[in-house]
Design a protein around this nucleic acid. Structure first.
Lengths: 373, 373
DNA sequence: TTGTAGGCGTTATCAG
DNA sequence: CTGATAACGCCTACAA
């Protein structure tokens, strides 16, 4: 009896209600009632059964219970990457709500890849989860999510909205947030403003093209990255600042190295920008690093506005002006919507837009303003 | 047919193999074989069944499958707080390995509270997960983990080791890591070195006492925080630097506000330390913030060494000298051990000690060395 | 090759 | 108040 404590095989078969019943000398039905606390059971027998259960180390089998009841008290979250603080915080919000409701959450990382996301949803569905929160990779190709809904599993979108899917979504107004950030720079007198961000691989090529009007147009689905570019362009147009494709640099998610290269390319432009908007937290860090690497001073040599109010943005010198959102609330609210659906709410899908805030700190400064009409 | 797409009730009963069988005009057994790809099935019938399944939108019921097979292909992770980058990164490592093995992971946050951890383990056990990775709150009171093992569910400890439990643990050598960090400061000529950290609520009182020898003794279980204090004291003793309880300030986890107060108390000491070792990533941030708030220069006015090589420690000015560990590897290796156990490995519990590295950057500098014998 | 039947553990229904 | 029995959906002996 020295070993097999550490390993998997340790236990012989786990005791069941039947075992407890036998041990207590009653029927399975009675044992079940005594343990599950339903129906009527005599006091004496109840204690007897409880004692037997304790003696045997009985633990109810949730799988069997789910089998009968149809409910698993489990939800799923398909995020992009839990090691990104944005999703980690959202997950925390989701877990908190789930725990309050007596549910657990299964986590899957998609790395923003549609194939992985699809597979994850499929597995979750097979596991009979009762609802899914997902940060979808694609906003059009959502067949797998529709399928979930058809199966009676509610879906709530987090961070991204889909026009195709009739589901709740918890998002921010990406275009407005970007426009506010860039306007801030423009009002400070900057004219040549760059933009740096990560985009999804499937969306990257030909993101931006010149139209007949001379204005920059942005083509692509309404995803956060694309919407933020739209906000940037809108602000530039509004303030009459000249736009140029070369001022918008991006890289596909997960390639931090490329990102720094793009940032440097931006800084090395013949007519380099005097200010840059980094449109996500990865780009913010990449830009900051690149600027530092070039030995440039912020905001003296170059101004910047970042995205996401991560802790480090106030630790750094100078503290960064950023667009702040609240992933914790996002996760919480998404989960709350999900549980409302699980409980039967079948009103039409709602688009919940959480506020963002431009937190002005010290990384963006004036440019001896040469304002334009 | 306008609505009920969004809500939970959407689906009528989900189709089962029996439904598919009926639709295809074959027996359940044949349908099962065709769908599950086991046994022999005629080509014609197989296609027929597949078609019927597609028509009905059949999706296998994992709960029923688990019921029969006994396996759920699910593991659990009980971490302290997923919004802490340390645990978020560890979770990523765990998920990656799980996915490779065809498993999913359920996440639970304990907030470093034993009662929550116990409840989480209980629920996970009921859900019939096949293994648990846990960052245990207590290293002695591990009855709930022993129970898991007795039930045949392998347990792997992450970040913390328990002498009581015969389980694998994946940890770092906390005492050695702290000693190295503090020795670094001492070798730089500092004599009055402070320490700042978070400790578990249950361990906080009377952490440190004077003994007859005049040396500082550290009482408490072998948890990371306590071990790091031991390392600090060992280094101080080794270099003949005078120790004092007032130089060691801590707060319970999750109370960041108190932490900054403790940091300030340290800086305000009549005989203030010339260097401080922040022994975890929360303390590192708190210390840095407090020092900044006091307008002190690093390392000119005060030197510091932090813990955990988070991104921001290199973004900040000056870049911080830190003790680095790899939570991603920790998660990965813990999960790998867990799957080895799940597959039947029942060798005695192994203590896997991952390396740490003192990364010397610029936050600790010399003190016109007044060395001691 | 295909079909029939039984059981995994729980809970609920129905008799006694 | 207690006991026997059926059912959830899948898989697998076993029989045809």
């Amino acid at each position: 009896m020295a070993s097999t404590k550490t390993g998997a095989q340790g236990g012989r078969r786990r005791p069941t209600v039947a075992d407890v019943a036998r041990e207590a000398g009653v029927s399975v039905a009675t044992a079940g009632r005594a343990l599950g606390d339903y129906g009527r059971v005599g006091d004496a027998l109840r204690d007897q059964v409880r004692a037997a259960a304790a003696r045997l180390g009985y633990s109810p089998n949730g799988v069997a219970r789910s089998m009968r009841s149809g409910g698993t008290r489990t939800i799923g979250f398909v995020g992009v990457d839990i090691s990104n603080p944005y999703f980690a915080t959202a997950m925390r919000g989701i877990c908190d709500v789930a725990r309050k409701e007596g549910y657990e959450a299964i986590l899957a990382n998609s790395d923003d890849r549609l194939d992985i996301e699809r597979a994850a949803v499929k597995v979750l569905l097979e596991k009979q989860i009762e609802g899914i929160v997902v940060a979808p990779n694609a906003v059009i190709d959502v067949g797998h999510l529709q399928r979930a809904q058809e199966l009676g599993v509610p879906v709530v979108l987090l961070d991204r909205h889909s026009g195709v899917l009739d589901a709740d979504s918890v998002v921010i107004d990406n275009e407005a947030a970007a426009r506010e950030a860039v306007s801030h720079l423009l009002r400070l007198g900057h004219r040549r403003v760059g933009m740096l961000l990560c985009v999804d691989p499937s969306e990257s090529p030909e993101l931006v093209r010149r139209a007949g009007t001379g204005r920059l147009e942005v083509h692509g689905a309404a995803r956060p990255s694309i919407d933020r570019i739209r906000g940037y362009v809108a602000a530039m147009d509004q303030y009459g600042a000249p736009t140029a494709a070369e001022l918008i640099r991006y890289t596909v998610v997960g390639e931090a190295a490329h990102l720094e290269r793009e940032a440097e390319a931006l800084l090395d432009l013949p007519d380099a920008p005097t200010a840059v908007f980094a449109a996500d937290n990865v780009a913010t860090q990449g830009l900051f690093t690149a600027v530092r690497g070039r030995g440039l001073g912020i905001p003296d040599d170059i101004s910047m506005v970042g995205f996401d109010d991560l802790d480090w943005t106030t630790l750094v010198d100078p503290p960064l002006t950023v667009v702040a959102q609240s992933p914790m609330d996002m996760g919480r609210i998404a989960a709350e919507r999900l549980f409302a659906r699980i409980k039967g709410d079948d009103s039409p899908g709602e688009r919940i837009i959480l506020p963002t805030e431009l937190i002005v700190r010290s990384s963006a400064a004036g440019r001896d303003a040469v304002h334009t009409a």
